[in-house]
């Protein structure tokens, strides 16, 4: 077996998976963060309690994703992170503000609570917008020209709407009563911009990148690829249906909305992976050109195949321990 061929492929897959898990998991945290200003003070506490035990581990997935980029593809890591210097810096500042607010909002004393709630929401918004910006710039090959900047701006606005949907769907699982009803209303409102952006991005991506257009719109590939957009549309329709069906919502099937969103995310990342492959930076460097030395990859590979199942195992354990509706757990 040719390790020099398979190991970069394995790590590209692992990186994609880590970033997909990140988007879904920290997506709902950040979404709830952005929804925070629209809730009453008591509801804010429940919303934070709904993500309290999870957010830290959720955020670690982006460290793993970027970590794999760094470990396995150091050449690409340099290109990506130096090109994205500004959005990365702003995203980090956003994540810092959001992350520390969990503790400060309850520990710094009542007179500071409103300030930390605002910083919580602000940090979540900044991080989400910057991640969209980074994604947009990355998809267009980090060229930095006018079209790709416009595209990056489009995704910068689009990604927060996906996160807000994830946040609202997570609240359907974790809350009840008035907050649950609010989450339904938030979801019904955010689902339209999210869908609009999804459509716009699907149209804009092949327009800004001819390489991506070629991959999608040449026969016979185009026919084989049809299930991806079709299934995405179906999952999106399902999402609207769940948010508008009283029967589904009030019989405890609200979690279906989260599942539908996960399906959308998975399909979108399959589409993205297909668009980029075999490049790790579109049109600039392939995963094999960017890869580390085989002996370094192999050393990490053994660690990864032992550690990753364990991580997945205890992540599931943590979600089981904190299953059910969020109770008033206090950071105080």
């Amino acid at each position: 077996m040719d390790l020099g061929y398979w190991l970069p492929l394995f790590f590209a897959g692992a990186m994609g998976l880590a970033l997909l898990i990140y988007v879904i998991l920290d997506g709902y945290d950040l979404g709830i963060g952005m929804l925070l200003p629209f809730a009453s003070d008591d509801e804010k506490d429940v919303m934070v309690a709904a993500i309290g035990p999870f957010w830290d581990a959720n955020e670690t997935w982006i460290v793993l994703g970027v970590g794999i980029l760094l470990i396995a593809f150091p050449q690409a890591h340099s290109i990506v992170l130096t090109s994205l210097y500004l959005p990365v810096t702003l995203m980090l500042m956003g994540l810092i503000l959001r992350g520390v607010s969990f503790d400060f909002r309850v520990k710094a004393g009542d007179k500071h609570k409103a300030k930390w709630n605002r910083l919580f929401a602000f940090g979540s918004l900044v991080a989400s917008v910057c991640q969209g910006w980074m994604l947009g710039a990355f998809v267009t090959g980090l060229t930095g020209d006018a079209t790709s900047t416009l595209f990056a701006a489009l995704i910068a606005v689009a990604l927060p709407s996906l996160y807000i949907m994830l946040g609202a769907a997570w609240l359907l699982i974790k809350t009840e009563g008035e907050l649950f009803n609010k989450a339904v209303r938030w979801g019904r409102m955010a689902v339209w911009p999210m869908g609009g952006f999804l459509l716009l991005i699907s149209i804009a991506t092949p327009l800004v990148s001819s390489a991506i257009a070629d991959k999608w719109f040449t026969l016979p590939n185009a026919i084989g690829l049809m299930p991806i957009p079709l299934a995405t549309a179906l999952a999106y329709a399902g999402l609207i249906w769940v948010f508008n069906s009283k029967q589904i919502l009030h019989n405890g099937y609200g979690w279906l909305a989260f599942v539908a969103l996960m399906v959308v995310c998975v399909l979108a990342s399959i589409g993205l992976a297909y668009s980029l492959f075999p490049d790790i930076v579109l049109g600039r460097i392939s995963i094999w050109e960017a890869a580390s030395a085989t002996e370094s990859l192999l050393f990490t590979f053994w660690g990864a195949i032992i550690a990753l199942p364990m991580i997945l195992g205890y992540t599931i354990f943590i979600y089981r321990v904190f299953r059910g509706k969020a109770t008033h757990l206090s950071y105080e």
Binding site: G67, I71, P74, S292, S296, L308, T315
Partner: peptide, 21 residues
């Protein structure tokens, strides 16, 4: 990167998730 990468990788894999979870 061939040296620093795996060491940082092991930190993420063996430590970060464990602590955070």
């Amino acid at each position: 990167g061939n040296i620093a990468g795996p060491l940082l990788g092991y930190e993420v894999l063996t430590a970060f998730f464990l602590e955070a979870s």
